[in-house]
């Protein structure tokens, strides 16, 4: 194809997206569109499966049977969401194994928040309430993104996630209305998860490298700063309902903006975690790589068995 033809195709392509048409796997697409989508969708998928770890580690210790089944179902959903997203990514011509390879080698990123430790039961509440809350703000607009398989995966994810945040909030509510010890536990969890939740929505707009292009392709409908503001504005009143205090002395309602002003985020900490030096980065990778390596003989066995079965069937047919 000549350069001119490609340029022509690109213009038609951008026009289709601007008209809100969906792009499907076999459609022509610019290489950059493909690569950007592989990167974003796989990051999203990785976040789901790494995100299973901090909560998964509390399944055996959940304080009641009701909480235990809810948490199990939630962590299982995260596996499901990872699976939907990897599948969407595979329509772009990469395999799940390739994507795992990128995750395990440290080449691919995932949400920075999962590199923090889940230390107490209240962290299950804080993760559901804050982390899922922030994730939903990010995810709902993606149900309408331009790439069909991603949009469809996100519709399923959002539908299933609707119970996750409520599950977390309910845990917090029970603690907040419980004994002094329980309330302290809830406040401590909020203190530790608040700032990482704000960071999770990404670097400030002036530092964000992918925003403009992503907006055009509807991979992003709002900027990081807008999302963060939305998250804060909707979460502060929820903290009031819980009777918990957001750990930010500068947090204040701004009548003029009809929004909350908030204090400075420690971006050094954010970049440290993103670059692989958060409290749990190494542990999380060790868990993922370990599960994958320990599973190899199992996956191989299943393939070998399938092939044997097929051969036997073919022989019978002859």
């Amino acid at each position: 194809m000549s350069e001119e033809q490609i340029k022509n195709l690109e213009q038609q392509f951008e026009a289709r997206i601007a008209r809100d048409e969906k792009i499907e796997p076999k459609d022509w697409m610019p290489e950059k569109y493909r690569q950007t989508h592989i990167r974003q969708i796989s990051q999203h998928a990785h976040s789901e499966i790494v995100g299973m770890l901090p909560e998964g580690n509390w399944i055996t210790r959940a304080p009641s049977l009701r909480r235990k089944v809810a948490l199990l179902a939630k962590v299982q959903d995260e596996a499901g969401h990872g699976l939907y997203l990897y599948s969407a990514c595979e329509t772009l011509g990469v395999t799940r194994d390739d994507l795992y390879g990128q995750l395990h080698s440290g080449k691919a990123k995932y949400s920075s928040i999962f590199n923090y430790p889940a230390l107490t039961w209240a962290d299950m509440g804080a993760i559901g309430w804050l982390v899922d809350g922030a994730a939903i703000i990010n995810q709902v607009p993606l149900c309408n993104t331009s790439y069909g398989p991603y949009a469809r995966a996100m519709i399923r994810v959002c539908k299933e996630e609707s119970f996750h945040q409520r599950q977390g909030f309910e845990i917090m509510l029970k603690l907040a209305n419980g004994t002094a010890e329980q309330k302290d536990m809830a406040q401590d969890a909020l203190n530790r998860w608040w700032w990482p939740s704000l960071m999770m929505l990404g670097p400030t707009d002036d530092k964000s490298v992918h925003t403009e292009q992503s907006m055009k392709w509807k991979l992003k409908r709002k900027t990081n700063d807008e999302l963060r503001q939305q998250f804060i504005d909707q979460t502060v009143p929820q903290a009031d309902v819980l009777g918990l205090k957001i750990p930010d002395p500068d947090l204040k309602w701004n009548e003029e903006r009809q929004s909350y002003d908030f204090g400075d985020i420690d971006w050094d900490e954010f970049w440290q975690v993103v670059k692989g030096h958060g409290p749990m980065n190494k542990e999380r990778m060790k868990a993922r790589v370990g599960a994958w390596e320990r599973g190899e003989w199992v996956r191989d066995a299943a393939m070998a068995h399938a092939e044997k079965k097929k051969t036997r069937k073919e022989k019978q047919a002859v």
Binding site: I49, L53, G56, I59, T60, A79, L83, Y86, A291, G295
Partner: peptide, 18 residues
Amino acid sequence: GELCGHGPSLETDIACTN
């Protein structure tokens, strides 16, 4: 429940959790 998140494949993980 100990295995959730550590299965040999995502599909198997989901099945054991079920």
